[in-house]
Design a protein around this nucleic acid. Structure first.
Lengths: 114, 114
DNA sequence: ATCGTATATCGTAAAAATACGATAGAAGTT
DNA sequence: AACTTCTATCGTATTTTTACGATATACGAT
């Protein structure tokens, strides 16, 4: 049984995990790099620089879109993507404040335990 | 065919993705919280606070250990875990310098494209 | 020596992620 | 109208992840 247990964690824990999952594939990291470089890209330009098929790239773009890290608009027959900087900053802030809290909770950061 | 294509990306892209993957499950986020709170924990204490079985928690701990975010030492019949702050800081730095580079590449952060 | 406790690992099942080809539909071009 | 181009989606195969129970091992206690 691999019943979904993710729901039994806190909203906060899930949010962090979801953001991390969005960038947990090198293709999606590469897509973000490419989009930052070019400010915006039509889908085909992204497909060109990735070693993946068009349909797979489309899927990865959709993952990034679902969580709000990128946004896409239809431009004629093409599809234009760009980074949603507001959301990206928010998610990063979420992760950073989490790790800051970790460090605060721990009093002896330099102490190697165990 | 779902042949593994992850190898065709850069080392850097893979490193970022691997770190993200390590914290892409709420259980592992929760484990890090618990470890930071308590400075160090025996395995059983972690199992107690998570809604997962002992064997599943052991698996998650192993994921975190593989990438170096936590370290474990055997202490008698118990197993003692703690956060490896050095590695955690390094991985975070990796992610932050990546996103900083994204922002630098993009000249008009406030411009909503598309 | 026997028993209980703690935990890693094995085996396995179910679910999710990854990848591609084929295709459909929309938008341009001739 | 016929044709090409672009991209999202469908169907599907493979792999990976998630989860648990059972078990083996190691340690401590009796």
């Amino acid at each position: 049984m691999a019943a979904p247990k993710k729901e039994s964690f806190t909203e906060h824990e899930q949010e962090i995990a979801d953001f991390a999952k969005a960038i947990s594939h090198p293709a999606r990291v590469a897509i973000l790099s490419k989009l930052a470089e070019s400010n915006m890209c039509i889908c085909g330009e992204i497909v060109e620089v990735l070693p993946l098929s068009q349909s797979t790239v489309s899927q990865h773009l959709n993952e990034l879109k679902k969580i709000g890290l990128v946004q896409g608009t239809i431009d004629g027959q093409k599809s234009c993507y760009c980074i949603n900087w507001k959301t990206l900053s928010e998610k990063l802030e979420l992760l950073n404040s989490f790790t800051d809290k970790l460090k605060t909770l721990n009093k002896n950061i330099n102490q190697n335990c165990c």
